[in-house]
Design a protein around this nucleic acid. Structure first.
Length: 588
RNA sequence: CGGGGAGUGGCUCAGCCUGGUAGAGCACCUGGUUCGGGACCAGGGGGUCGGAGGUUCAAAUCCUCUCUCCCCGACCA
């Protein structure tokens, strides 16, 4: 049994000035964590104890589907070169040199190391499938660490990797992870949602994210209240209401109209008496790529067309470009391509690339919402003029059509048509079907049944351990403190004698603590010589879900059990205290 | 990296504008009283005012540079 009087639990009456988010303030106040530097935290006794419980749950569930490894955090440069990510990861990768001047980095994920093992060791289809996982620190030099433990530079991650012979095998490994993740987050007491997600820098096809709704979260989750549709904003789509096209003006061919000084969509639409929905929004970007062999940087104009009232989604844009980074065009570049200043740009009069491979011409990507539309209005590539009667496919030829716009709240669900909502959430887990990206680039091969060499297909799967705790605090707190689910709380029960100088109270509290502990509960005895008010305030703060108050009623053989979440207060006899918690445990 | 804010005992902050003695509350130590929602009395310890340079008889305060942290944007577990 742990006695508070002997422990280091530095609770704070006030939140540190640099904390903004509830979980950050409370975890510091409760003595769980202390900050060492931006995005770098020490976990103190209560924090580490809670982490250990989370880790134990994760490990138990992962052991049902995979095998635990422990990989190094220090990686040699060459494996990251092999995967191509030494260059791709840029400043996010912590890099360092050893005494001989050799380049090393700190692992931000471990696809490279796992694939390296697979490459060297896996020889036959008979060895597949494999699921390998670890629970180990990861390092990312985040551009901006944030919100306490929500976005940090060193964190504990459960990362796992699956190797299968074919896509059907990957489906099975993926499903195993999906189910294991559900069990993990259920056991951790989180109220989470599973959403369709964007694969991002990881590459790959299918991807799901496990998210916990919280205003502190950085994820935008689009969800339907009616059906179960839920997706990351970077991935979400919606059904659009049909838009009535304008009737052709004049002879129906592109018609120049004078729009003096009117640059924005809104201004032009109002001036011409039409809706922004009948306008084309023209956005100009440049993608810059370094040729891997020559090292020469090549840049290429990328122009995006959207419906006038729509917003470009950067993630969708990036994936339409195959992940190549793009930056907004500068004024001179715009002049060069369109021969017109920004504000009057349009697709007509430029010869666009017929495909992304058609490298000499500028690329024109058009959002699906413009497909099949007629008689739209765009800039005329001439100062103070716009064009009417623009019909895609007739007046200009796009390089390609893609889903490029961001969904907005209130649009119709793509599955059932009901209104979509957008909410903030914390991403606690993410699963990816990676495909062949790493196994191919790093040269992993096995022989199949027919003795032919095949490349194994991979999946990769992550859980942020800190984020489980953070999300749990975010979802269950008030101005006095927080309460964790007993499974992940540092202690399940706090026994509080109101006055330790009264021998009888202290004695009873000890005895009750011992009995509860013998019954298998994690018990903390607050035997500090403090006034009851101080102990109650601390009890409310530190995340322990149940409190047993040992006070005056002891003379009548009674204790009080306080449920932190509801603040319910129940009298229980000393004799029955064990059964009381036993019954609660059964209820869980 | 762009934009905004902040660095003063352990914590939260005042003092800075208008240069001259470093302050409050909480926390801490000793003694006493007190004991069901952050007690009271008495005494006490603790601060290179983020760092460097400059102006001045004199700098927490004015000037220059710099470091760190937080918040808003582009990234992710």
């Amino acid at each position: 049994m742990h006695r508070w009087s002997e422990l280091f639990i530095p609770t704070l009456r006030e939140a540190p000035a640099d904390a903004e988010v509830a979980s950050h303030k409370l975890l510091v106040r409760a003595g769980y964590i202390r900050q060492l530097a931006a995005g770098i935290y020490s976990y103190l006794f209560l924090g580490q104890r809670s982490f250990n419980k989370v880790v134990a749950i994760v490990r138990q569930e992962m052991d049902k589907i995979g095998q635990e490894f422990l990989l190094p955090a220090l990686h040699p440069r060459d494996i990251w070169e092999a995967s191509g990510r030494w260059a791709v990861m840029g400043d996010n990768l912590f890099r360092l040199k050893d005494r001989k001047g050799a380049d090393l980095c700190l692992g931000m994920t471990e696809e490279e190391v796992m694939t390296e093992i697979a490459r060297k060791e896996l020889r036959s289809y008979k060895q597949l499938p494999q699921i390998w996982y670890q629970i180990a620190p990861k390092f990312r030099d985040e551009p901006r660490p944030r919100s306490g433990l929500l976005r940090v530079r060193e964190f504990l991650m459960k990362d796992s990797y699956s190797f299968d012979l074919d896509a059907a095998g990957l489906d099975v490994s993926y499903k195993k992870h999906y189910d294991a993740y559900c069990r993990i987050f259920d056991r951790c007491g989180l109220k989470y949602v599973v959403i369709e997600a964007y694969s991002g820098a990881m590459g790959g096809s299918e991807s799901h994210e496990f998210a916990v709704y919280s205003a502190a979260g950085e994820d935008q989750v689009v969800s339907c209240e009616h059906c179960h549709y839920a997706a990351n904003l970077e991935k979400a789509t919606s059904k659009l209401e049909p838009v009535e096209d304008l009737p052709p003006a004049g002879d129906g061919k592109p018609l120049r109209v004078h729009t003096p000084g009117l640059k924005t969509i809104e201004e032009v639409a109002r001036y011409l008496g039409v809706s922004p929905r009948n306008k084309i929004k023209t956005l100009a970007y440049v993608s810059e790529e370094k040729d891997a062999k020559s090292g020469r940087a090549t840049s290429r104009p990328i122009v995006v067309l959207l419906r006038g009232d729509h917003q470009l989604n950067e993630a969708k844009f990036a994936s339409a470009l195959g992940g190549a980074p793009a930056r907004p065009m500068q004024e001179e570049e715009i002049q060069q391509l369109f021969r017109s200043p920004a504000g009057f740009l349009g697709p007509v009069g430029v010869v666009w690339a017929s495909s992304l491979q058609d490298g000499d011409r500028p690329v024109l990507l058009v959002d699906h919402a413009l497909e099949g539309r007629r008689n739209l209005i765009s800039g005329a590539n001439q100062p103070d003029y716009h064009l009417k009667n623009i019909t895609p496919g007739r007046d200009f030829q796009a390089t390609g059509y893609a889903d490029l716009r961001s969904v907005t709240a209130g649009e119709a669900c793509p599955k059932c048509g009901c209104a979509l909502a957008i909410n903030q959430a914390v991403e606690v887990g993410h699963i990816f079907k990676l495909g062949y990206k790493y196994s191919e680039s790093m040269g992993a091969r096995v022989l199949d049944r027919n003795g032919r060499e095949v490349v194994p297909i991979m999946g990769s799967y992550g859980i942020g351990i800190e984020r489980i705790l953070t999300a749990a605090v975010e979802q269950s707190h008030d101005e006095h403190g927080f309460w964790l689910p007993p499974q992940i709380a540092p202690f399940a029960i706090l026994v509080t004698p109101t006055n330790t100088s009264e021998e009888r109270l202290l004695h009873t509290a000890r005895e009750v603590s011992e009995r509860l502990e013998a019954a298998g509960f994690d018990v903390l005895l607050d035997d500090r010589d403090e006034r009851p008010g101080v102990k109650f305030k601390d009890a409310d703060l530190v995340g322990i879900p149940f409190r047993v108050t040992v006070g005056k009623k002891v003379t009548e053989g009674m204790l009080e059990v306080v449920h932190r979440s509801t603040r319910e207060n129940k009298d229980v006899t000393i004799a029955a205290i064990g059964e009381y918690f036993e019954a609660l445990r059964l209820a869980h």
